[in-house]
Design a protein around this nucleic acid. Structure first.
Lengths: 155, 155
DNA sequence: GTTGAAATTTGAACTGT
DNA sequence: ACAGTTCAAATTTCAAC
């Protein structure tokens, strides 16, 4: 992961449809060397996948919510974790510091769908003790573009 | 946005490198008709961009944090919003319901970087009144795959 | 890592239904 | 709006440097 790899990764993150010719300019290498780099980035798992970024509103999930979850003490949380991982409306599920145990990020169609999720999926979990939810009124920024750090050690 | 468009959108969301031939199988249409559909999805903004999904740990931002922000009453928040939009470590910035005004999602290298962000970027903002931050101990799930709703009205 | 060329595949356009 | 062919372009692989 040297400077060249980082530049390629940054470019691919912004535009996954960039051609090798374009990437070659960014990297300063030849086209074939650039192709090698891209392949290696995939092999090493730096590039996990290629995806189309969709507009949430246009695919029917305009409502964004966050839910804090506290689980009952001494209760196995495996079932809860599995349920969250499976559920397509749960975009994120993090074990967090602070008074709560988990923080969920949700995408749903509307408030009715949020209510249904809270009642039928979360409160239905035996290990769930307490919930606190909030919704986004507006989104100033929502990106998946990661800050790529300016090189530390291993190349 | 009929059933066919939805199937294509779902496929592209999971694998943006899928070729038209593969998509044609999914959609049940010919390759050329599928190409038309994809082009229209881009034109309508359903597909916003094509991106490589990178591994946060491997690009040097393994630490995930959330920060609640309360702004001073009667203070213009434009500068704050602009600063958050610009900052690459701020992945998300939502105006939210509840006692806080904004919720930020951050990606940084380590706790030192988080501290620096809190001190130099957030507390430095004149409009910021109070902060509360938490970090992810572990991430059970973190996906950008949106739940694509099963068709409502307009085709 | 570079260059250059061949083989394969892909996306883009045209034509007709 | 869709299907089938054709055409151009980009990716992949390979050679030799």
């Amino acid at each position: 992961m040297d400077e060249i790899d980082r530049n390629i990764a940054i470019a691919l993150q912004q535009d996954g449809s960039a051609g090798l010719a374009e990437l070659a300019k960014v990297s300063g290498l030849s086209v074939s060397a650039t192709a090698e780099r891209v392949k290696r980035l995939e092999e090493r798992g730096v590039v996990r996948s290629w995806r189309a970024d969709l507009d949430p509103a246009q695919v029917g999930c305009p409502l964004l919510g966050f839910v804090f979850v506290a689980l009952r003490p001494g209760r196995d949380d495996a079932a809860f974790r599995r349920a969250m991982s499976r559920h397509e409306h749960v975009l994120e599920c993090h074990r967090i510091t602070g008074p709560w145990h988990f923080l969920l990020k949700l995408r749903v169609a509307d408030l009715a769908a949020l209510e249904a999720f809270l009642d039928e999926e979360l409160r239905a979990q035996p290990s769930v003790e307490r919930l606190e939810s909030l919704i986004a009124i507006a989104t100033e920024k929502e990106t998946a573009l990661l800050p790529v750090a300016p090189a530390t050690e291993e190349e």
